[in-house]
């Protein structure tokens, strides 16, 4: 039902768009018609360019998310294990979490230059803190009964974390991953728009920037379509499935 509604509204928006562009009020350099956009989209796909840039962006974001999630878990574990680390991690989050990745860009360029490393760093920064914040909150608010039962049943140490802390904090962890992904995805596109190669690959953000420079407005829209599609796929397929297979199945969704 939800999907049908989205389809219906998307159709209406595209219709609306087509009518406006057909009215001739805006030059096609400002608002290309849906037809032109779809044509540019298909052409770019056929050339392989758009798909290549998309793959480049996806690989880089997966790399950043992977590293970011890894460190988030490491810090979250340290903070439940040692009181001193808990204070340290809390301070770290308070400092770093409100900083948008893009605001750090000039500094990151100074430290790591303008290459791929810098983009990965921006993604790690964007993903790490929300995931860490949510995971530690999850760990801290875990119902006491689960840890009591765990102790009672003889679960100790790292086992306690993997078999009880993590699944019990799943609603928090998933929402942290969601926020981390969304932030990282935005930061990635923005960072790519700022630096990238001219002929070589620079990702979707770079593709948009390049189309801008060459005044290919329809091509910019084509890249936006890809961004929307990826956003929807990740949201609807990945996260909704993840939730359906975990916290919804377990009856742990917050009502």
């Amino acid at each position: 039902m939800m999907k049908n509604k989205k389809l219906f509204w998307s159709f209406l928006i595209i219709l609306f768009w087509q009518v406006i562009s057909m009215s001739g009020t805006f030059s096609s350099l400002i608002l290309p018609s849906p037809y032109m956009v779809i044509k540019a989209f298909l052409e770019s796909i056929m050339r392989g360019e758009l798909l290549n840039e998309t793959m480049y962006s996806l690989i880089i974001i997966l790399e950043g998310l992977f590293i970011g999630t890894f460190f988030a878990f490491l810090l979250a574990l340290a903070s439940i294990r040692y009181k001193i680390m808990e204070d340290f991690v809390e301070t770290l989050i308070a400092i770093a979490h409100p900083l948008p990745g893009i605001a750090l860009l000039p500094l990151i360029i100074l430290w790591f230059g303008t290459g791929r490393t810098s983009v990965v760093f921006v993604i790690i920064h964007s993903a790490l803190w929300p995931i860490l914040l949510n995971t530690t909150t999850g760990f801290r608010t875990i119902p006491r009964i689960f840890t009591d039962v765990g102790h009672n049943l003889g679960v100790r140490g790292i086992h306690l974390i993997s078999t009880i802390y993590i699944p019990a904090s799943m609603p928090f962890i998933i929402s942290g991953l969601r926020i981390g992904w969304a932030r990282a995805w935005r930061a990635l596109i923005s960072a790519e728009m700022i630096f990238g190669a001219v002929g070589g690959k620079g990702g979707l953000g770079w593709y948009i920037f390049k189309q801008r420079v060459f005044m290919d407005t329809a091509g910019m829209f084509a890249a936006l379509i890809i961004i929307v599609i990826i956003g929807m796929l990740v949201e609807d397929l990945l996260f909704e499935r993840l939730e359906a297979n975990t916290i919804e199945k377990w009856g742990m969704t917050v009502k």
């Binding site: 360029i109 230059g113 303008t114 290459g115 630096f195 990238g196 190669a197 001219v198 002929g199 070589g200 920037f209």
Partner: peptide
């Protein structure tokens, strides 16, 4: 003509100058 295209990076003039001096990038 496109021989060096894959080696180009985009930098505003001042950033380009700093990057050139730093010899890193």
């Amino acid at each position: 003509p496109e021989r060096l295209d894959n080696q180009l990076i985009t930098l505003a003039h001042p950033d380009g100058m700093n990057a050139l001096f730093s010899k890193n990038d």
